[in-house]
Amino acid sequence: MIEILKAMNEDLIKKNKNKPDALKIQQQIKAILSEDDCFLNMPIELAYSILRDLNVSENKLKDTYLQLIEYKK
């Protein structure tokens, strides 16, 4: 799932090349996603915010988040 989000983020970076405000947000998200287990290191509110900025629909936020905070041995 994290790889999917990274791909979505890259697409949005290309799409917003000429929109500085939107581009800035996507670049910030890129830096966040590059961190291992990033979603286990941030409050759920910020996690949902990132998913919204990546255009994940509201009704899919919880299920997506559950996948992202999956326990890894």
Binding site: I32, C38, L46, S49
Partner: peptide
Amino acid sequence: FEEVLKEYQSTTQNYQE
């Protein structure tokens, strides 16, 4: 990472409880 998160939080319009 905390600084990046903080900056993101100040930028995004999608932060909700």
